[in-house]
């Protein structure tokens, strides 16, 4: 605290060098949570069609799960339509679920370290599932043997 008087000897209040951090708003404002909220609703609607269609074909139609084998999947994947269906369903479901579990972790894990590591595990598993699933859908080989 130097110059606390001006040229005429009157006291002055120094200009603050930086704004004092306001409580409860440590980080910059972002609309991430709003977009996440909208995404849950939009992806949820799409998933109702995609997942119900998937379950109806796989579990109900023509004997359900009893008729599923490698040949059945190969037959479906001969069509780009079902590959695109599965790819969309995979991406939306995994992101929808990851965001859901992020919310659950935020609600119940209190220690900053637990929150951090639980989320790291969550994001790692999501990355693994999306990468592996996408790779399989794109590189499926109907002439594979064994």
């Amino acid at each position: 605290m130097t110059a606390t008087v001006d040229g005429a000897g009157r006291p002055v209040i120094e200009a603050p060098r930086s704004r004092a951090p306001r409580p409860g708003r440590a980080r910059a404002r972002s609309n991430f949570e709003l977009y996440a909220w909208v995404f849950m609703r939009v992806s949820g609607l799409a998933l109702i069609v995609l997942v119900f269609g998937h379950l109806f074909i796989m579990n109900v139609l023509d004997g359900g799960v009893q008729r599923i084998n490698w040949g059945f999947v190969a037959g479906r994947y001969a069509s780009p339509f079902w590959r695109l269906w599965d790819l969309t369903m995979l991406l939306l479901a995994e992101l929808h679920g990851t965001n859901g579990l992020r919310t659950v972790i935020n609600d119940y894990a209190e220690r900053p370290q637990s929150r951090f590591w639980l989320k790291m595990m969550l994001y790692t598993s999501a990355f693994l599932v999306v990468t592996l699933g996408t790779l399989v859908i794109f590189t499926f080989d109907p002439n594979i043997s064994g």
Partner: peptide, 25 residues
């Protein structure tokens, strides 16, 4: 929601076997 999420993890892994071999799938 949590139940379905954990199933999805297992389900993507088991379906990935279509890329390994018909026998394993």
């Amino acid at each position: 929601g949590v139940l379905v999420f954990f199933f999805l993890f297992a389900h993507v892994l088991d379906t990935a076997l279509i890329r390994v071999s018909p026998t394993s799938y």
